[in-house]
Amino acid sequence: MDQDFIDTLLLTGKLAGWTTAILFVIGFPIAYLLAYRRFPLKSVAEALISMPMVLPPTVLGFYMLMAYSPQGALGSFLQSVFDVRLAFSFGGVLIASVIFSMPFMIQPLQNGLTAIPKSLREASYTLGKSEFTTFVRVLIPNMIPSIITAVAMTFAHCIGEFGVIIMVGGNIPGETRVASIAIYDEVQAMNYQTANQYSLVLFLISLVILTVIFSINKRKITTI
């Protein structure tokens, strides 16, 4: 296997791994707020988070690209103050990927939290436990299947992402050229064998991840 092939797969894993990790950290508080708090325009917030599920990836990619552009407010600010250019860079692709994969992390977490009987939280509060202690000791351990689903769906979705990445990142080897882009690129160049290699690896990775995760998930459900 040539270095380019390995680099592309490593970059794909790096993007999916970072996206999942970032979304796990920011997704939990958002899911908690959506599950348990009432606030104005909550439906709008929920709709916005779910938008990537129905929006063509190219639409989001287009707006992200406009925002990153040095002519745009965000792009020019980042360029002039921090000397950072997000368009056609790994950082830019990562931000777009985090936004685009958000519902895949937040929705299972939110569903997991709302599925836990309210009385469990209330029992913990009456026993003198803070919201944070209740979250860590009572809620998280009783929603492990939902957490596994959220992580699995986010990671798998991210590995297969194409539209947003090609819009925001283009096809720069080692920077933004992930496996799904490479497949498209190799097919355009009529290198079907290489395209097949990438496709097979992506197929197997996705299948193995989902199978392992769902089997763990099933075991957890039966033990709870």
């Binding site: 009987p117 009385s119 029992a123 009456t126 003198g128 803070s130 009783n142 709870i224």
Partner: peptide, 29 residues
């Protein structure tokens, strides 16, 4: 808040923590 009232509340559905053993449920309290 409930945490500062020091009440013992026994819920109709008992609200035992499914992730903890009996012993741990008691210890947690």
């Amino acid at each position: 808040p409930p945490q500062q009232r020091n009440v013992g509340f026994m819920f109709q559905d008992y609200a035992l923590f499914p992730n903890m053993s009996i012993e741990k449920n008691i210890r947690f309290a």
